[in-house]
Simulated scan of single mutants.
Amino acid sequence: MSYAFPDSDPRPPHRPRRGPLTVAVAASVAAALAGWLVWQAVADSGEGGTPGAAPSSQQRPSTGAGASASPAPSDQGTPDESADEDKNDDKATGTTSSAPAATGPLKGKVVVIDPGHNPGNFRHTAEINRLVDIGTNRKACDTTGTSTNSGYTEARFTLDVSRRLRTLLEKQGATVRFTQDGDRAWGPCVDERARIGNKAHADAVVSVHADGSAAGNRGFHVILPGSVKAGIADTRAIVGPSRELGERIAGNFVRATGSAPSNYVGNGTGLVVRRDLGGLNLSTVPKVFIECGNMRDSKDAALLTSGAWRQKAAQGISEGIVSFLRG
């Protein structure tokens, strides 16, 4: 997801919270800062790219609301150097859905996971380029997503992380639903992705992505819905809980993966507010996007193509969701 947009908001001051919630958020933020300091001490931050600028041949607008495609890859992608590890990890974690656990801290909770894009989108350009209403304007139904320089696709990445995430959440007792599981030829459109979470009365929705920014731009960020009241979009009721969900995920993602918050958006917070994404604008339940890293940076790509790291990413997102739902 490239960043050339006017809709990012500076991080607003937190409103006072009470009781256990205050303690939980403080712990999350403290842990995130500690994790970031550790990362700074042991890893190359990859500074030096132009913030927000993607290479001209790969630049694309916002994921989930009309990103232009990188060159069309095969639906399976070209495995990176970690292909053997991918196979072993996929066998270990499994990619099929299992019944929710009979008991667990998330029993009775519904989580919708939205794996960004679809491996078949590039074969259906007419369908995914169709414009849909996102409240503030009309945008493309969906996009192909990005890929690493060696061809590992974002759509493949998002499905893998999402399936690992489902397994972890179901072990906690949650009912987990997907917007797509590689089981349809293309899509769904961004408006349908939002409706799936709404109709499920989800307690939390997370859309999983990876970015396609310039080399040198590194790190993860969580995208939060801005306050929108336009046309069919009204996010005012979900802005607060969505921020809480995003903060919990960001703090736990740092701890689980060792990755730092983005060095090119979010001013080091790992949090970005946007009003131009249909998947957020049309949601009526708490929802965030997470960009797990930048596929166009070689150092981030080495992480994103590692099955072991993707398991850590799923763990961090899962722990954030559990923390949010348990309050």
Results as ranks from 00 to 15, higher is better:
Thr143Leu: 08
Asn129Ser: 14
Lys139Glu: 14
Glu192Met: 01
Trp186Gln: 11
Leu165Arg: 12
Ala200His: 13
Ile113Phe: 01
Phe122Lys: 15
Ser150Met: 06
Val110Pro: 12
Ala200Trp: 15
Thr103Arg: 00
Asn217Gln: 15
Ala185Trp: 03
Gly197Gln: 03
Thr125Gly: 09
Arg123Tyr: 03
Arg184Glu: 11
Glu154Leu: 05
Gly120Tyr: 02
Gly173Trp: 13
Gly212Pro: 13
Asn137Trp: 10
Ser227Trp: 11
Val206Gln: 04
Val176Lys: 01
Arg195Pro: 11
Gly108Ile: 02
Val206Asn: 00
Val112Cys: 04
Asp114Met: 09
Gly108Ser: 06
Ser227Lys: 09
Val205Lys: 06
Lys107Asp: 05
Gly104His: 04
Thr103Leu: 13
Gly116Tyr: 00
Ser227Asp: 10
Asp133Tyr: 04
Ser207Gln: 08
Val208Ala: 15
Phe220Ser: 05
Arg218Ala: 08
Arg163Thr: 09
His201Pro: 03
Gly94Lys: 07
Val132His: 13
Ala214Arg: 07
Glu192Thr: 06
Arg164Thr: 00
Thr175Glu: 07
Gly116Leu: 01
Ser147His: 14
Gly226Cys: 01
Phe178Ile: 13
Lys199Gly: 06
Ala92Thr: 05
Asp191Leu: 03
Val176Trp: 04
Ala92Gly: 02
His201Lys: 15
Val110Lys: 15
Asn137Ala: 10
Lys109Trp: 07
Thr179Gly: 02
Pro105Asp: 13
Gly151Asn: 12
Gln180Cys: 10
Arg184His: 05
Lys199Val: 14
Thr93Gly: 00
Thr95Leu: 04
Ser98Ile: 15
Pro119Leu: 07
Arg130Val: 03
Glu154Met: 06
Ala101Trp: 03
Pro225Phe: 02
Asp181Gln: 12
Phe178Ser: 00
Lys107Met: 07
Asp211Val: 09
Arg218Gln: 13
Thr125Ile: 14
Ile113Leu: 08
Leu159Arg: 01
Val222Trp: 11
Asn129His: 15
Gly219Pro: 02
Ala102Trp: 03
Arg218Met: 11
Ile134Trp: 08
Pro105Asn: 15
Arg177Gly: 08
Val132Asp: 14
Thr136Lys: 04
Thr158Glu: 04
Pro100Gln: 03
His221Asp: 05
Lys107Pro: 14
Lys109Asp: 05
Gly135Tyr: 12
Thr125Gln: 14
Asn118His: 06
His201Ala: 12
Ala210Asp: 01
Val112Lys: 05
Gly216Asp: 01
Pro100Phe: 01
Arg195Val: 06
Pro119Lys: 04
Arg218Pro: 07
Phe178His: 08
Asp191Thr: 13
Ala214Leu: 12
Thr175Val: 11
Thr146Ser: 10
Asp191Arg: 12
Thr93Leu: 05
Gly108Gln: 04
Asp133Lys: 01
Ser147Asp: 12
Pro100Cys: 02
Pro105Trp: 09
Asp211Gln: 11
Asn137Gln: 11
Ala174Phe: 10
Ser213Met: 14
Gly197Tyr: 03
Gly219Lys: 07
Asp142Glu: 12
Gly219His: 02
Thr175Trp: 07
